[in-house]
């Protein structure tokens, strides 16, 4: 679900298209945008406090003759939330799980790649300290 929360809407659509034909999905409740209050910890590791809210899109579906699927994603993309919920439902199906995982692998690789780029770019700005030779020695 962590990968599905980070996938682009277009990626989710492409995955669903690839996994098709799919059973019809009906909404358990209409997809909805709401807020989640994010929290921090005093001093980073202490007692919690309320930091501020974030928008979240959620969806819950049931596949015809199959499992229920849920999705919660930061942002307001209801279409992406519904697509993620369908994927979640497909993942519940043992017969389809491997195919879903395989389709998500590309997204997982993209995310890992982006994180690696951030780390490499940040590491290039790491300060190398050196000690100047002092004259009196």
């Amino acid at each position: 679900m962590a990968v599905m929360a980070r996938a682009e809407s277009t990626e989710l659509d492409a995955i669903l298209a690839r996994l098709g034909p799919l059973p019809a999905a009906s909404n358990l409740k209409p997809p909805e945008v709401g807020l989640v209050m994010l929290r921090g910890r005093t001093g980073g590791d202490g007692a919690p406090f309320n930091l501020g809210e974030a928008t979240v899109a959620r969806a819950a579906v049931r596949l015809e003759g199959g499992a229920a699927g849920f999705a919660y994603r930061l942002g307001r993309d209801l279409k992406a939330a519904r697509a993620a919920a369908i994927l979640d439902a497909l993942w519940q199906d043992e017969a389809r799980r491997a195919a879903v995982e395989e389709a998500l692998a590309a997204v997982r690789a993209r995310l890992a790649d982006e994180a690696a780029t951030v780390r490499a770019e940040t590491a290039a700005t790491k300060v190398d300290f050196f000690t100047l030779v002092r004259g009196e020695d």
Binding site: V36, M37, R39, G40, R41, A54, R58
Partner: peptide
């Protein structure tokens, strides 16, 4: 917007 709930504290 409705409030869905409270997230867990962020781990910085």
């Amino acid at each position: 917007l409705p409030r869905f709930g409270y997230a867990q504290a962020l781990d910085t």
